[in-house]
């Protein structure tokens, strides 16, 4: 098998880029993504929930725009009838819906640190205050006119999914904006 190649490798220069001796943002790319999109037929959603319970041990149905961290993977309900399974794949019975491999369609970047939410709000028109966008929330929005997905993993840690072809451009813009906070890029 060929090695997987990052979409942002040319501009992925690990190191510290402080602003007035401060570093308030940490970036790293989540390489070797595994994304399985599961799209349920509208009349099978309850059965898909049961399927997740049986196959993945998801105890409680996941609400729209929320996610669940599991043992070696996580499940995110991206649309009312669409989920993303990250980290592994499962076989979905055809009568429940369709399954699609999207592992190469996105570049995923973790953004964390004291100013991570402020950095994101320089671009995203999303209310990221913790009450409104609690931990394990997800959202679809846009940065610089490019549709992106955002997951919140902790108060100050987010995962951003950018369509692969736009990833380099958005990565550059994020770094440009982050320079006012000071940032560090660590090994992916």
């Amino acid at each position: 098998m060929l090695n997987r190649n990052s979409a942002i490798i040319e501009k992925y220069n690990t190191g510290k880029y402080p602003f007035e001796d401060n570093i308030e943002i940490i970036f790293f790319e989540n390489c070797n993504l595994i994304i399985q999109q599961i799209a349920a037929w509208p009349d099978e959603i309850s059965n898909v929930d049961k399927f997740f319970s049986d196959q993945l041990g998801v105890q409680k149905n996941i609400d729209f725009n929320r996610g669940k961290i599991l043992n070696n993977n996580s499940l995110w309900r991206m649309e009312p009838s669409k989920w993303w399974l990250l980290g592994s794949t499962i076989n979905l019975p055809e009568n429940l819906g369709t399954s699609l491999e999207l592992s190469h369609a996105f570049t995923s970047i973790t953004i964390k640190g004291a100013k991570s939410d402020i950095l994101l709000n320089r671009h995203l028109p999303l209310d990221l205050r913790l009450d409104n966008f609690p931990i394990y929330s997800s959202a679809s929005s846009a940065i610089h006119h490019v549709s992106v997905k955002l997951f919140r993993l902790s108060e100050k840690e987010f995962k951003l999914f950018i369509p692969r072809g736009f990833a380099l451009s958005i990565w550059e813009i994020l770094l440009e904006t982050a320079s006012q906070f000071g940032y560090e890029i660590i090994d992916s």
């Binding site: 190649n5 979409a7 490798i9 006119h145 451009s169 813009i173």
Partner: peptide
């Protein structure tokens, strides 16, 4: 805002760009 220069529009590249 930042929509100037090469970021005037979002830039899209193919996986073989480089």
């Amino acid at each position: 805002g930042r929509n100037v220069g090469k970021h005037f529009r979002p830039l899209r590249v193919t996986p073989m760009h480089q």
